[in-house]
Design a protein around this nucleic acid. Structure first.
Lengths: 199, 199
DNA sequence: GTCTATATTGAGATAGAC
DNA sequence: GTCTATCTCAATATAGAC
């Protein structure tokens, strides 16, 4: 049921989606729909929780991993930041593919209601966590020094988030292959493989 | 006047923007606004023309340059594809910064009206042009061979387009500096400068 | 060019029967 | 859980005076 609703939301945008459209698509009357959701805003809230919850879990797992495992790489007990970035980017690509409609909803919020403002606040918190990891990567010397870590974080997630605009589940790329391609691009860009430089 | 209207559109989304909001923000009555625009859709159409026109000029100039100048790099009279990509990316970053609200409008279209469908068609044409250039870059051996040119094109413009989501004209980065950073990222990604590999 | 007044449609939401 | 009927409000758009 939520799936159909979110499909309507992504097809027309949340604001332009009417309860009439939703109930039509569900084959129910408007008031029948109101038996399952208290309001249109509640539908949005539940849908956004899916997207935000998935993304927050991505960060929790990447950041928590090595403290849980005891720290295999560094005495400090923390994974190297670059490894975390790789893990987060891969997982975020999978979320973008698998939770596509929910993520579209999140990415297109305007912040004109309480529900939207709370969601945007949680989204900002995720951006801040990502930025912190990029800054750690920089201080570990694992990030090129001619690129601001804040910009690098924004570029990277701008790219990942843009996947939802064109990804199709029945398209030629599997989410895993897409994650590989994104990681390759993020790591070393467009230029020819470095081997070529020495031919 | 259009500037104020587009600001309302980007703040609330086109669909959620009412003529009441627009006329309030302009300090006019609704019918006074109707003296300048035939309909809400016409406002959108004019605003989208700005964004699409700017982007189409970017491509026209990059693709037309060397045939006009006689071809300085290659006997064929065409610029190398990588040079065109660089030029297009830089110009597109500037458009994203300078025409930000108009571009936001374009990027968030849903395609639920004739005006929107026509705009999306023009946008698709631009994507196709970009993809063709990336394919030429690949065939010239100037693009790494482990990355599909179509994906590379989408990633690159996903990144550039995502700038409109957070860029602020009064922020720390000038559009030019931002273009430099994007080009550096697109060219060689996050990894440390190659010199570091030989230390 | 701008106004007030209004026509008309559809929105989100509720009441109450079944 | 689903329905019909309805409330209230705001939407786009127009008419016609100034």
């Amino acid at each position: 049921m939520l799936e159909v609703i979110v499909q309507v939301f992504t097809d027309h945008g949340y604001d332009a989606s009417s309860l009439g459209m939703i109930s039509n698509r569900l084959g129910l009357s408007k008031s029948a729909v109101y038996h399952h959701f208290a309001s249109k805003a509640e539908m949005l809230e539940i849908a956004l929780e899916r997207a935000l919850g998935a993304l927050e879990r991505v960060f929790d797992e990447a950041e928590g991993r090595d403290t849980a495992e005891g720290g295999e790489r560094e005495a400090s007990g923390r994974a190297d930041a670059v490894g975390q970035i790789r893990e987060i980017v891969r997982a975020a690509v999978l979320v973008a593919c698998e939770q596509q409609p929910y993520l579209i909803l999140l990415l297109r919020l305007h912040g004109n209601s309480d529900v939207e403002l709370r969601a945007l606040e949680r989204r900002r918190a995720l951006t801040a966590r990502l930025r912190a990891i990029f800054e750690r990567a920089r201080s570990e010397g694992a990030l090129r020094d001619d690129l601001d870590p804040g910009l690098a974080a924004r570029f990277t997630f701008g790219l990942v988030n843009s996947l939802v605009e064109w990804y199709r589940p029945d398209g030629p790329e599997t989410p895993d292959a897409l994650a590989d391609a994104v990681l390759a691009y993020v790591r070393s860009g467009l230029r020819v493989n470095e081997v070529a430089d020495f031919r």
